[in-house]
Simulated assay, not measured.
Amino acid sequence: MLTADIDIGGTLTDGIFIDGQKLVCVKVDTTPHDLTVCLFECLREGATQLGYSDVDAFLENLELIRWSTTITSNVLAESRGPRIGLLVSRGHEKNLYAPDAHSVVLKGILSERDVIGVADSTSETEIMNSVRALLEGGVRRICVSLEGAHRSPEREMQIKRIIDQQYPDHFLGSVPVLAGSDISKSADDATRTYCAIINAYTHGALAGRRRSAARARLHRNVSGEPHQRRRCGDCQDQGDRYD
């Protein structure tokens, strides 16, 4: 089985290639302006060391590519993500279900003023008024993470549908909405909420790189379906809507 494991760092890109009999390691310069350039340069170097005449012949036989990057880490470290709005169960606006009095997330990528509490009795009109207030304040993505939603996600899905109906994705000015139960099935409400916030915050940058990789894949006629592995454990295919 021919496999490639490629890790793109800030300065160098490393590749490990195995064909079942031989293992080779390569290293090329990272190209920050377009990560697909160093990706294919690494593949080309690996193909050469395994004795292939060109990278296209190598790709025809390649069964698996594992591609890891520091894209999301860079977005978090440099605070380059969009402004996030969060809807949580009423009473958890400050702690986000954590045992501490105040959530550390609020001091980093999420502003306390962009967190709104909702209850089972909160009406559709009240929900939309809250969302409009967030958007008018500069929020660009909405997360919905309710207490106990890993067991009963219906209320999260209902709120998501309400927002999607008002801001459909095919309209100019659409609002991406992410439900915590879609991102993580953790029984811990705080963990599930943090996963949703981080995914929403970093998704734009990652989606842009994925689209570049998809275009390069089509240009090279690479077969197979790419998948994105989230740090929180589940798997998302290239065609998922949330972008």
Score class of each variant (00 low, 15 high):
1 M>T: 01
3 T>V: 11
4 A>Q: 00
4 A>C: 00
12 L>H: 12
14 D>K: 02
18 I>P: 00
25 C>G: 13
26 V>H: 01
29 D>V: 10
39 L>K: 01
40 F>W: 03
43 L>Y: 03
44 R>K: 12
51 G>C: 04
53 S>M: 15
54 D>M: 13
80 R>F: 02
84 I>G: 05
84 I>W: 05
85 G>K: 04
85 G>T: 06
86 L>V: 11
87 L>W: 01
88 V>I: 11
94 K>R: 14
97 Y>M: 09
99 P>H: 06
102 H>C: 03
104 V>G: 10
108 G>T: 15
109 I>D: 07
119 A>V: 04
121 S>D: 14
122 T>P: 02
130 S>T: 02
136 E>F: 02
139 V>T: 13
145 S>T: 09
149 A>E: 07
154 E>W: 08
155 R>E: 07
155 R>I: 03
161 R>H: 13
161 R>K: 11
169 D>T: 13
169 D>W: 12
170 H>E: 15
174 S>H: 15
178 L>Y: 08
178 L>P: 05
182 D>A: 11
183 I>D: 06
187 A>M: 15
187 A>Q: 14
188 D>G: 08
199 N>C: 10
203 H>V: 07
205 A>G: 10
210 R>L: 08
213 A>S: 06
219 H>V: 04
221 N>A: 10
225 E>S: 11
235 C>M: 08
237 D>K: 01
238 Q>C: 09
242 Y>D: 15
